[in-house]
């Protein structure tokens, strides 16, 4: 088995567990672990299931931190008060932790919680977006463009079919107007275009290796003068993949116990993050 085969096999397990449990999206930690396997840098993080775990994570990661609810049932975390960013002390961390649990419990009493994701906040970089999509005609494709809130206004994006090589990804970067930021715009330092290109290649490789993935959004990708960081990675699964899993479940309901697990907002269970450490 080559290294790339191993990578594919290892990450396939993550996708399979998501599909088998009928989820349309990877959990944040799953998405991060897949991204890391493909060479994307992600912010260091850990899952806190107790305040004790929170304290030791905070010590390990350092501040500032972002705390986010980790639950298969909560996709739009910030909409229900499931995210607190800019946490700079242990005291703040504890109150943020309680606040998140409280908010989620109020908004989604039946949500199954894995815990609270504790993430080291990245230093602010220039915001770009990298995406993976699947075209009915051409198959896997990738997108690169200017990130932030104006993505859809300016549509300063370029596309390529995946998989692709780094030179092609660099061309994609050059094709956007945002590439001027890479060269150093109005006295700012030039950015690491090659790191952005590597991120594009990685997203393309994930799309090409895993036909069950519908789309990937790395938004934002912070690009620095040296290196790049995938701050938020979202991975959606194809409908057909979960439908296939659904067929299996219908025939053999016993195979998917998690689907039938009692939906309690219990922080300690952690049951849905199997296979990811």
């Amino acid at each position: 088995m080559t290294a790339t085969d191993q990578r594919k096999a290892r990450t396939s397990k993550v996708f399979r567990s998501a599909v088998d449990s009928g989820r349309a999206a990877l959990l944040e930690r799953e998405a991060d672990s897949v991204a890391k396997s493909y060479g994307l840098r992600v912010p260091p993080s850990g899952l806190a299931r107790t305040e004790g775990e929170l304290a030791s994570l905070a010590k390990k990661l350092g501040f500032p931190l972002a705390l986010k609810v980790a639950s298969r049932d909560v996709i739009h975390k910030s909409d229900i008060g499931g995210v607190v960013a800019g946490v700079t002390s242990l005291k703040d961390a504890r109150s943020a932790y309680r606040e998140i649990l409280h908010n989620v419990k109020a908004a989604k009493p039946r949500a199954v919680l894995s815990g609270v994701l504790v993430q080291k906040m990245a230093p602010k970089g220039n915001e770009f977006v990298v995406g993976g999509t699947r075209d009915p005609q051409f198959g896997p494709a990738v997108m690169f463009g200017l990130g932030g809130v104006y993505v859809e206004l300016f549509r300063d994006v370029s596309f390529r079919l995946a998989p692709l090589i780094e030179e092609e990804a660099l061309e994609m970067v050059k094709q956007t107007k945002a590439s001027r930021l890479m060269e150093g715009f109005r006295g700012s330092k030039p950015l690491d275009a090659r790191a952005a290109a590597k991120a594009i290649v990685a997203v393309g490789d994930i799309m090409a290796d895993h036909p069950d993935v519908d789309s990937i959004d790395v938004n934002p990708l912070f690009v620095y003068p040296h290196g790049a960081l995938a701050v938020d990675v979202r991975v959606l699964m194809r409908e057909s993949a979960s439908q296939r899993a659904g067929v299996v479940r219908a025939r053999a309901p016993g195979l998917a116990p998690r689907q039938r697990a009692p939906r309690r907002p219990i922080v300690k269970s952690g049951g849905t993050e199997n296979g990811v450490t």
Partner: peptide, 25 residues
């Protein structure tokens, strides 16, 4: 193409953008 609205990439990737990318590549 009809794309998942929840995905940025999906909502920006018109069919034509992919055709254009394929030709260019």
């Amino acid at each position: 193409g009809a794309q998942a609205a929840s995905s940025h990439t999906g909502s920006i990737a018109g069919q034509d953008a992919i055709f254009a990318a394929a030709f260019q590549q």
